[in-house]
Amino acid sequence: MDPDSVDGAGRVPHGSSDDPDVLDLSANINPRVPGGTRRAYRAAFEDARSYPNDAYPAFRAAAADYVGCDPEQIVPTAGGLAAIRLTIGVTVSPGDRVLVPAPSFGEYVREVELAGGEAVVVPHGELLDRDPAEYAMAIVCTPNNPTGECYPTAALRAFADRCEAAETTLLADEAFLGFTDRPSLAGRPGVVVARSLTKLFGLPGLRAGFVVADGVVGDRLRTARPAWSLGGPAAAVGAHAMRDSAFVEETRRRVERERAFLRSGLDTRGFDALPSDAPFVLCDVGESPADLLASCRERGVVLRDATTFRGLDSHVRIAVRDRDATERLFAVLDEVR
């Protein structure tokens, strides 16, 4: 992090509400957790009484099996954002240019600027067409947040090859990729993959994630990673969750089904609901969404104001949950529309 760049940085708005009396559709969190998660968490209590094994063998083995790479390539972090910050921190120097998509996760620009770099923001649909040789790093988010679509696999891999040839680090944020059947870029030369256990496993407060990398960047990540970068209980629960392949498969099928139901109902009610591969749907409401957001909030339903994403001015983002949650949303929309 560049100290001279911190003073001019701001915070980035995010979704989620801690109000237990509302239906929170602003954060894209699985409403279910893998079976046995509570038991695994309780069993890990004793791990919190001492420093964790800084090698994290069980967590790294589970993560490697989960994404399909070598355990030596896994660098544990306290969540996906910590993985992104660590990667940018060991790659971007003051003055470096970084290719960043928009609209997309706002923390990319913030982290690049905190490192003293210059975020060169381009439409996310055009990013793979850029020449990576002009940048120290390129960042992709797949599925993209908040638009929801994945980059085509062949095009993404071709871009990764061009980044490797240009010696440009490619940071692939795969926070939502587990909701899809798409292959990870984990283990691909020149690519750093950031993964989070927050969304798919319904554990945002656990703060568990990891980076996948090899080569020079991988060595830097392993050196720069803080000691005990992942708490013992988080490592134990994370390993338990990633081993539950049946839960992952069930979640994918359920989200696919419930997303189709959500989009159909939104279309029926006059919303322009974009196609999505993610556990959320971006909707163009055709006007400033402030009134809609406020009216829904008054009736106990919280949506994500997507106008805080660069380039969007009439959108809301809605999380895919279960059928009861979606039908409650529809009832509210029928009142306010």
Rank of each mutant, 00 (worst) to 15 (best):
V112G: 05
G36Y: 03
Y56K: 11
R222V: 12
F330H: 00
R252T: 09
Y135H: 07
D284E: 12
D18L: 13
L197P: 05
A175H: 11
P103D: 08
R328K: 14
G209M: 09
G232P: 03
L274V: 02
A278N: 01
R157S: 10
F247W: 04
D7H: 10
R321H: 11
T268W: 00
D2F: 09
V122D: 01
G311P: 13
A55Y: 01
V217Q: 00
A27N: 06
L25M: 10
V216R: 02
E107P: 06
D54M: 10
T223I: 07
L170Q: 00
P204D: 04
P20I: 10
L25F: 02
A224E: 10
G270T: 13
H240Y: 08
G232R: 01
E126S: 15
L292H: 08
I318P: 04
G190C: 07
L171D: 03
Y66L: 12
R110F: 08
D18I: 13
V281G: 02
D173S: 12
A165N: 12
P101F: 08
R328M: 11
A58N: 06
D267M: 04
T37V: 10
A294G: 07
F247M: 03
F201G: 00
S17N: 00
A306Q: 08
P226H: 10
A63Y: 10
A236Y: 00
R253A: 11
A290Q: 09
P101M: 06
V33Y: 00
A241P: 09
L177G: 01
G148S: 02
V248W: 10
R32T: 15
G106S: 03
P189G: 02
V90M: 05
G187Y: 02
G178L: 05
M242I: 08
A63R: 08
N28K: 09
P57I: 11
G8L: 15
A58G: 01
A224K: 01
V191T: 03
P57K: 09
A213K: 00
E118R: 06
R49F: 12
T153S: 11
Y135F: 14
P189C: 04
T326A: 07
G270C: 12
G205Q: 13
R85L: 15
A306T: 10
R130P: 07
D322M: 06
W228G: 04
P52Q: 13
P13N: 07
R97E: 15
V100L: 08
R297D: 12
R39C: 09
A136K: 13
A165G: 11
A138Q: 07
E118N: 01
A172T: 00
R85D: 15
D284C: 07
V302K: 00
D322H: 03
E107S: 14
E250M: 14
G8A: 15
D47N: 06
D322P: 06
T198Q: 13
R49P: 08
G300Y: 02
E118A: 02
E167F: 02
R38N: 11
A78H: 01
D267A: 14
F247Q: 01
D70Q: 07
V216E: 11
T268D: 12
L171E: 03
V67E: 00
S5R: 10
D96G: 05
P226F: 14
C296H: 00
A166D: 13
L99F: 03
H14F: 14
R254P: 06
V120T: 09
V237E: 05
E126T: 15
